[in-house]
């Protein structure tokens, strides 16, 4: 069995989840509480990766990450290397691909908090930042955990976008879903079956966890 591909998948899912939890929290906060012109435009933009075919996302990522693209050129200037076909490249792709699944449950959890609680925190002297850390986050833990599980599962299943940006370099960008595809291509059904089977208990366990979290969040 291709343990290396499974390892890359889990590593990618973990890094994506950790980065997105930190990144999505302020975006979800803005969408839940702030009022500013163009908010609905920003919200639609954040959810756009969910509505686009993965190959379309992959295509544009190739454009910006290529040595001639904006991000690719900047990266090359900084490090001398390329972003395409690297683990960092597919991590960026995976983050963009999963943003909606991080922001949406977090925003829902933040919106559920009664506004008067926040106002009470302000009256008690807490800045908006302190209120976010001391009141909003602790009262949205189940929503944040649900977001983490969703992002983890969703980035484990990414395929098209990663194949376009990262190709299939063993130990670097060859994730399990690509390994399955390649094994089937070469008629190696046994190898494909082994990897495919290993997904089922992982995904099942995470879904059970989500159900548990949803039950806990009910008062």
């Amino acid at each position: 069995m291709d343990y290396l591909a499974l390892y890359v998948t889990l590593k990618l899912a973990l890094v994506t989840t950790v980065v997105l939890m930190v990144m999505a929290a302020p975006i979800a906060y803005l969408l839940a509480y702030a009022r500013f012109p163009g908010k609905s435009l920003l919200e639609a933009l954040v959810y756009l990766p969910m509505a686009l075919p993965p190959t379309v996302i992959g295509f544009y990522l190739i454009i910006v990450m290529s040595p001639k693209g904006l991000i690719g050129r900047g990266w090359e200037w900084l490090t001398g290397g390329s972003l395409l076909f690297t683990f960092l490249g597919i991590t960026i792709a995976s983050i963009i691909y999963s943003i909606p699944f991080a922001v949406s449950p977090m925003k829902a959890a933040f919106s559920k908090i009664d506004r008067r609680l926040l106002e009470n925190a302000y009256v008690l002297g807490l800045s908006k930042r302190a209120t976010f850390l001391r009141v909003i986050i602790p009262n949205s833990l189940s929503g944040i955990a649900a977001a983490a599980v969703l992002v983890f599962l969703h980035s484990m299943g990414a395929f098209g976008v990663l194949l376009m940006v990262g190709g299939s370099i063993p130990g670097e960008t060859k994730v399990a879903s690509i390994a399955i595809y390649e094994a089937v291509e070469t008629m190696n059904y046994q190898a494909a079956g082994m990897i495919a089977l290993s997904f089922i208990p992982i995904s099942y366990a995470f879904l059970l966890l989500i159900n548990k979290l949803n039950e806990d969040s009910r008062p």
Binding site: R116, N120, V123, G125, L126
Partner: peptide, 16 residues
Amino acid sequence: PQKRRLGYVFQDYNLF
């Protein structure tokens, strides 16, 4: 409100 240092109790929702 942070700088006024006052106490404000309403019907409910004061407690975290």
